[in-house]
Design a binder for these strands. Structure first.
Lengths: 131, 131
DNA sequence: TTATTTGTATTATGTATTATAATACAAATA
DNA sequence: TATTTGTATTATAATACATAATACAAATAA
């Protein structure tokens, strides 16, 4: 698995790795029960230190996206929590995004349209034709 | 102006200040043409260093939220750019939020509902009764 | 013309975060 | 027993953040 890491970004590398994995889960490219590459492998593939990858896995585990399977490695979680803590954090982040959108002249319809466009790229029914 | 700064947050203080101001603009609490407090004043009011506040103002200016008026200080921008750069960044942030929402079991309708709820708290028609 | 107010620059210090490096540990399978 | 996996530990280095102090420069007010 290679991740398009931006070494000049203000986002730390371990968070870029975490975000990439979360986006892959959201898109369905990584499914419940699937294993992630070993931290040594992902580190080697992407030219970063294994401790950096390990830190990404640690955050993913603490937030419930992955489970650590001793000997086999990190596995995508099946259980979806809908936990209240996540919704609180989501709410805060959405508040800031929506406020900055309004300040930048985007109205509600434009914002909602952007969201719907993104959801549609994550539609699990990607096969052409019959669902 | 006092800002509820969280000194233990992983979000740097200067970004918390910036975010607070962006949210106030989005909510209509700060309007185009209005002046922000002087950096010395805001620093003093909030128990932080003026260079920290200055850094927040610098980011706000570079992103187009405020203009620096020599002698009078920082003023909320009137011109809304709808700039393409902002939409690109918004898109990236929404992608991550939507992906993590899906991974956490929130469906599109729940997500859109959260957005609409937040927009409704920013409805400029806040006066009771007739709009 | 001087005083004042404003944001910004500069230099410096200290702390925290991030990333790396190397080595080793412990669990669990092959 | 060997191997694979994530994690722990110690250490180093670079960067980011926040503060502190002083001063500058622009632009108004007096």
């Amino acid at each position: 698995m290679t991740i398009d890491l931006d070494m000049t970004s203000s986002i730390p590398i371990y968070l870029q790795i975490k975000n990439h994995i979360v986006i892959s889960i959201g898109k369905g490219e990584l499914k419940a029960g699937e294993y992630l590459p070993a931290v040594r492998q992902l580190a080697c593939d992407n030219g970063v230190n294994m401790m950096t990858v390990s830190k990404a896995y640690s955050v993913l585990r603490s937030e419930g996206y992955i489970e650590i399977d001793r000997r086999h490695g990190a596995k995508i979680s099946g259980t979806k929590l809908k936990n209240e803590e996540f919704k609180v954090r989501l709410s805060c982040e959405l508040l800031l995004l929506i406020a900055s959108s309004k300040a930048n002249g985007l109205d509600k319809n434009a914002f909602i349209q952007m969201c719907e466009n993104i959801f549609s790229t994550m539609n699990p029914q990607k096969v052409q034709g019959i669902v």
